[in-house]
Amino acid sequence: MIKRLMPSCREVSEKVLVGELFNAPLLQRGLLRLHLMLCEHCRRFSRQLEMISKTVEEIARPQLDPRVVKAAKRRILEHLKPK
């Protein structure tokens, strides 16, 4: 019964790709979690996507040095002020 209900690897990876892994209805969510516990490949796929999300968050941050932002604000304001 569980085997019949269990989502396939393709279905799990598609849920991961659209970012809807854990928004599914309760039963489906439970089955998705169970699949991830049992399937090493889907777990790796899901972890890699998490890792990618975390990195994207960090891509812009190092460039946002407070001094850079402050200097940019000053130049932008100078430019926008009516001459």
Partner: peptide, 26 residues
């Protein structure tokens, strides 16, 4: 055809991001 991996995903699986992985993703 059954929706199971025939070519499973490869690549890093670390839970902590290393500089190398960050650079590759960037």
């Amino acid at each position: 055809e059954s929706g199971l991996w025939s070519r499973p995903p490869l690549g890093p699986e670390e839970s902590v991001l290393t500089g190398e992985i960050k650079e590759l993703i960037a």
